[in-house]
C-alpha cells in the first residue's frame, strides 16, 4: 500500500515535470511525425506490401520508444537523483518510471499509428487485435527500455549504450509483436495469435519482475 501510494506520487511528479517543460514530449512527437513522413517520402508512390508496411511501422515505433525512454534517467541532474534517493524507495522509482513511460508510449504509439495510416495506408483487417497489440508493445517497450536506460545512464557515452544494449534485448519482443500484428493485418482468428500473445505477456512480466528486483542494486551506485 505504502509502495502504491509512493509510486502514484512519483508518477504524478513525472507528469507535472513533463507538463512544465513540454519540450520533451513535443520533441518526441515531432521525431515520430518526421520519421513517418520521411518513410512516406522515401517510398514515393509505390504501394507497400503488408509485411513491409508492418515491419516499417514497428521499426519506427522502436526508434521512437528508444529515444523517448532514453531520457528517463538522463534528463534530470545527478543532484536531483540524490534527492530522490533520500525520499523514495528504488522500487517506487522504477515502477513509476515504467508506468509513466508505458502511458506516454501508448499515446505516442496510437498517434503514430494514426499518422502512419493516413500517409501510408492501412491494410489492417482486424483493428481490435492490432490496437491491443500496439498497447502490449508500448507496455513491453517501456518495461524493457526503462531498466536499460537506467543501466546505460551509468556509463559514459550513454546514448550509444542505450541503442546497443536495448536492440538485441528487445528482439524477442519485437519479433512476437511483428508476428501478432501480421496476423491482425491478415485478419486471422484470435486463436492463431493467442499463444504468441501469451509468450509476449510472460516475457513482459519476467522483465518487469527483473527490473523490480534489480533496480535497487543499480540505484545504490
Amino acid at each position: 500500500m505504502e509502495l502504491a501510494k509512493e509510486t502514484l506520487a512519483l508518477i504524478q511528479k513525472e507528469f507535472l515535470l513533463e507538463w512544465r517543460q513540454k519540450y520533451a514530449i513535443n520533441g518526441i512527437l515531432l521525431y515520430l511525425a518526421s520519421t513517418v513522413f520521411i518513410c512516406y517520402l522515401s517510398f514515393g508512390n509505390s504501394k507497400l506490401f503488408a509485411s513491409t508496411w508492418n515491419a516499417l511501422f514497428w521499426i519506427i515505433l522502436l526508434f521512437t520508444s528508444v529515444n523517448a525512454v532514453a531520457k528517463s534517467f538522463m534528463q534530470e541532474r545527478a543532484a536531483r537523483h540524490i534527492y530522490y534517493y533520500s525520499v523514495a524507495s528504488p522500487q517506487g522509482i522504477i515502477l513509476s518510471k515504467i508506468v509513466y513511460n508505458a502511458i506516454i508510449m501508448s499515446i505516442l504509439a496510437l498517434m503514430g499509428f494514426g499518422m502512419y495510416s493516413v500517409v501510408l495506408g492501412n491494410p489492417v483487417q482486424d483493428k481490435e487485435l492490432f490496437l491491443i497489440n500496439i498497447l502490449l508493445g508500448a507496455i513491453g517497450f517501456s518495461t524493457t527500455l526503462t531498466m536499460i536506460s537506467g543501466i546505460a545512464s551509468k556509463g559514459n557515452n550513454s546514448s550509444t549504450l542505450m541503442a546497443i544494449l536495448s536492440f538485441p534485448v528487445i528482439i524477442p519482443m519485437l519479433l512476437l509483436l511483428i508476428k501478432i500484428s501480421k496476423n491482425a493485418i491478415d485478419g486471422l482468428a484470435w486463436s492463431v495469435s493467442s499463444k504468441d500473445v501469451l509468450i509476449l505477456v510472460s516475457i513482459n512480466v519476467m522483465l518487469g519482475a527483473l527490473s523490480y528486483l534489480l533496480f535497487p542494486y543499480l540505484w545504490r551506485s
Binding site: I151, N156, L161, L165, V169, L207, L214, Y217, R220
Partner: peptide, 27 residues
C-alpha cells in the same frame, strides 16, 4: 562487453554489468 568497457570505476562497472547480465540472461 561494450558496457563493461565504458566504465572507468571498477566497482560501478562490476555492479552495473552484473545487473545487465542478470537482465540479459533470461532474454
Amino acid at each position: 562487453m561494450v558496457l563493461r568497457a565504458s566504465f572507468s570505476d571498477d566497482q560501478l562497472r562490476a555492479r552495473v554489468s552484473a545487473v545487465f547480465s542478470i537482465l540479459a540472461y533470461p532474454t
